[in-house]
């Protein structure tokens, strides 16, 4: 079973160092495909777009998601829990097409802005779930103790709750960043013609022109996501399951 999970990925990494253009036979070690990759202006643009979208979307989603997580923890609400949980349970394609229709009806030109707005929307749920999990494991008596000792509501939040939440906030932000940089389906429908992100670029390469450059970009992306995930895992013991 582990062979089934890993063999394809190992082959991609190995081929990214292979001299052969067609990729079938091993003809020797090379870093040529990485040079090609970094000289590819379109690819660098896509990477830059992914980075900008990922940063803006994860920071905004973290702000909204943290508020939502706190609200879910503190109050008994009706609408917000539904709005947080349903997005996790509906098919991605519904998100994609409904946002496409929405943006077009609003006369918003599809591009970076529409992609960022969409990414913030689907990342909020993930952040909120992480924050809420962190808060539910927190000892409420610490806040009460602070209040008894004369701290104001803001003071106890600022010096007790917030520091305890911090690892959850960072984990949520990293999770949102990973989700954003990884997303294909929703981006595919909301990006319009001009804007490319790394997953969109990889999709085009798979569909149109398969060159060994794709092995190199895949390997780099794998390393990047794994580093991010290790960071999340260190900060938060419960990683909620994500999207495919």
């Amino acid at each position: 079973m582990y062979l089934f999970l890993y063999l394809p990925l190992v082959v991609v990494v190995a081929y990214s160092f292979n001299q052969s253009r067609l990729g079938a036979e091993w003809t020797g070690f090379t870093l040529h495909w990485y040079q090609v990759l970094f000289a590819d202006a379109e690819m660098m643009r896509a990477a830059w777009n992914s980075l900008v979208i990922g940063l803006v979307a994860s920071v905004s989603a973290t702000v909204f998601g943290t508020l939502a997580g706190l609200a879910l923890h503190k109050f008994r609400l009706r609408l917000l829990p539904v709005l947080i949980v349903t997005p996790l349970a509906i098919p991605d394609i519904l998100w994609g097409v409904s946002l496409l229709v929405f943006f077009v009806l609003l006369n918003l030109t599809l591009g970076m802005l529409s992609v960022i707005l969409a990414h913030v929307a689907f990342c909020i749920s993930y952040v909120a779930v992480v924050i809420r999990a962190r808060l539910s494991g927190m000892d409420e008596s610490l806040v009460e103790a602070a209040r008894d000792l004369g701290a104001t509501a803001w003071g106890s939040f600022r010096f007790v709750t917030l520091p305890l939440m911090a690892p959850g906030i960072i984990a949520g932000a990293l999770l949102a960043f990973t989700m954003s940089i990884d997303d294909f389906v929703i981006t595919f429908f909301t990006a319009g013609v001009g804007t490319t992100t790394l997953p969109l670029k990889i999709y085009t390469m798979i569909k149109v022109t398969v060159t060994p450059e794709i092995n190199a970009v895949s390997t780099l992306l794998m390393v990047l996501t794994m580093l991010l995930v290790l960071a999340i895992a260190r900060l938060s013991p419960q990683i909620p399951s994500g999207k495919p």
């Binding site: 294909f184 790394l198 895949s218």
Partner: peptide, 17 residues
């Protein structure tokens, strides 16, 4: 771990296999 690799990359990897 493999699940955190972009799924397009995983599909592409399967295409090779």
């Amino acid at each position: 771990v493999p699940f955190w690799t972009n799924f397009l990359i995983r599909i592409y990897a399967l295409m090779i296999i």
